[in-house]
Design a protein around this nucleic acid. Structure first.
Lengths: 183, 183
DNA sequence: CCCAAGTGAGACGTGAACGTCTCACAAGAA
DNA sequence: TTCTTGTGAGACGTTCACGTCTCACTTGGG
């Protein structure tokens, strides 16, 4: 009888990834509940987005934990992270663009924590000599977000096979498009 | 007296890059005209977005022409293209996300032409042995869009210096994050 | 069995943005 | 100067999604 809050959030995430302007009614139907019930659990669209944001942050931090960013080569840590985050990539792509229009308002501090952890990984790679130092950790972090969003949309629209998601992102981010003699 | 259509479009592009949900009134004020006059030139929000789309396509094709994609090493052609497109990157970032919600409707064929030309550049680079072949031209094209959007937003929000825009995008896309002994 | 809690369906009022319209005014052309 | 054209300001009605509310129904617990 009781609505599964987590199921509602994941349905909403899946829908909003495809159509970021979906109405509350569409969100409710996608979750298989009525608009009234949706409002009983989330005061309004804003509250829903905030809940999705919290979910996105939670999943990101879980992926960061599972990827053990401090262990082994930075490149392998990055690969583990992208593998872990894949299932949440669509949600993150939605939140990434949604954040663009929160102009003025301070962004959730959770994102700052996540940014810092990812940037620290790139910095560690630079310090160890694994990564080049002319691309700043902040930019590499930003680029990772952009590639994840592109990858998530490409998968959603059938332009990229889901199984290639991690490989394409990690290989491009780490190795770039240029062919190299020595791997 | 007569309104400068091009000026209106560029104002709208600049505003919508920052705030994609801006109202027609905000767009009008940003261009320094009244809402009534804006409606005299663009029947509605949809028509405005279509006009912006046409502008984005026009600027993209102009950049493609100016970059002479068929000349010299593919990597240099790519660098020329990103340099040429930089001034329109914000507009393209807006259109890139806006396209996500045109589900169902066929996208403007102009984008198909542009996609094809960029993908052809990557394919040329692969054929010549310059680029690796395990990353598909379609994905490299998608990734380029994603990085341009990330770059444009990062610049708009002050996280990236405008002068570094081209370098960061091209270097990451071509060379990746890994440090290499031989350049 | 009965009751309480949660849900679905739908009505209702609200507010925002839209698109249209009118009218007065300013600028350039005749 | 006079006339024409385009603009600004604002009023107006419409649409759409929102948030709230009611009421009947279902489901699970006591």
């Amino acid at each position: 009888m009781a609505v599964d809050r987590d199921h509602v959030l994941r349905s909403a995430a899946a829908l909003l990834t495809r159509k970021s302007t979906a109405t509350m009614d569409e969100v409710a139907r996608a979750a298989g509940i009525s608009r009234a019930t949706l409002h009983r659990h989330f005061a309004g669209r804003d509250a829903l987005v905030r809940a999705l944001e919290a979910l996105g942050i939670e999943e990101s931090e879980a992926a960061l934990d599972a990827a053990r960013l401090d262990d082994g080569p930075a490149r392998e840590a990055l690969r583990r992270f992208v593998t872990e985050i894949e299932s949440a990539a669509g949600l993150l792509a939605f939140l990434y663009t949604e954040n663009q229009l929160f102009e003025g308002e301070a962004q959730n501090e959770g994102w700052s924590r996540i940014d810092a952890r990812i940037a620290a990984l790139f910095r560690r790679g630079q310090t160890s000599g694994e990564f080049r130092i002319d691309l700043t950790p902040a930019w590499l972090t930003e680029a990772l977000y952009g590639l994840m969003a592109s990858g998530a949309w490409a998968v959603a629209e059938g332009r990229l096979a889901p199984k290639d998601f991690t490989y394409m992102i990690v290989e491009l981010l780490l190795g770039g498009a240029l062919r190299r003699e020595e791997p």
